[in-house]
Simulated assay, not measured.
Amino acid sequence: MRHAFDPAERAAVYRAIHERRDMRHFVPGNVDPAVLARLLDAAHHAPSVGYMQPWRVVRVTSSRTREALRGIVERERLATADALGERREDFMKLKVEGMRDCGELLVMALMDGRERHVFGRRTMPEMDLASVACAIQNLWLAARAEGLGMGWVSLFDVDQVRRLLGMPGGARPVAILCLGHVEAFYPRPMLESEGWAARQALHLYEDRWPAQPSADARTASSEPPE
């Protein structure tokens, strides 16, 4: 195809996608400022509905703030464990963040004043959140290409993080991002390796959502033939 990348460039893009991992284990070392600038520029070139670019990034450089953020995450980790019932102990064995060890800690947030932006959001206001997710994914893939690990931490109380970072009313933290050097990338997603979940098959429908079989039909289809 006339506009396609050459084979090596295409392979690199798909490699970054398939080898991206949600990293929890980091090794000491600062992230080179030039590399960090490239990663943030990649995030800032994400698509956004109505070109509103709703992402805001807080770079956490204070060890005190970093530890306070980690405390917020830890409280939510325990609350999540309690909410999981019979899977509580399995969850507590998982490493869910690397906030003390990563070279950079970033908080990705939604801007305030988003109600002014109607283009693309009149019936789907959550598209601002989708835009921020695109920025995070850009950052993640660029980090993998640079040989850096990144982990997305979502276990936190939104209002507590908002207050800690002095966010204005209407702004909302979306993700705490751990970024840094790693000993190795996980060969498979960590939650898959730990037996928490498995990758599902792609659900691809043609033209319309398929009719769901009734409970009786599902039961009957699961029975062995006579």
Rank of each mutant, 00 (worst) to 15 (best):
S154G: 15
D157N: 15
D90Q: 12
W152T: 10
M111F: 02
E126Q: 13
K95E: 15
G103Y: 15
R87K: 07
T123A: 10
A142C: 10
M150T: 11
R121Y: 09
Q137I: 00
L148P: 03
D101K: 10
Q160K: 15
M150K: 00
A142F: 05
K93S: 03
E126R: 14
E126F: 13
T123P: 01
E146S: 05
G147W: 05
S154A: 15
P125L: 10
L141F: 04
M150A: 11
A135L: 01
L110Y: 06
M108D: 00
E126G: 03
F156R: 09
Q137K: 01
M127Y: 09
D157L: 12
H117V: 11
V107P: 09
G149W: 08
G149K: 06
D101R: 14
L106F: 10
N138T: 01
E126M: 12
A142N: 06
A109Y: 04
D159T: 15
D128S: 14
W152Q: 05
M99S: 09
W152E: 07
R87P: 01
E126K: 11
A142T: 11
D128G: 14
G103R: 13
M124D: 08
L106C: 12
G149R: 02
F91C: 00
E146H: 06
G147T: 04
K95W: 09
F119Q: 04
S131F: 04
M99P: 03
V158A: 14
L148G: 04
V132L: 10
R114A: 05
M127W: 11
G151E: 00
G103T: 12
D159G: 14
D159W: 08
M108H: 10
I136V: 14
M99V: 15
R122A: 13
F119I: 10
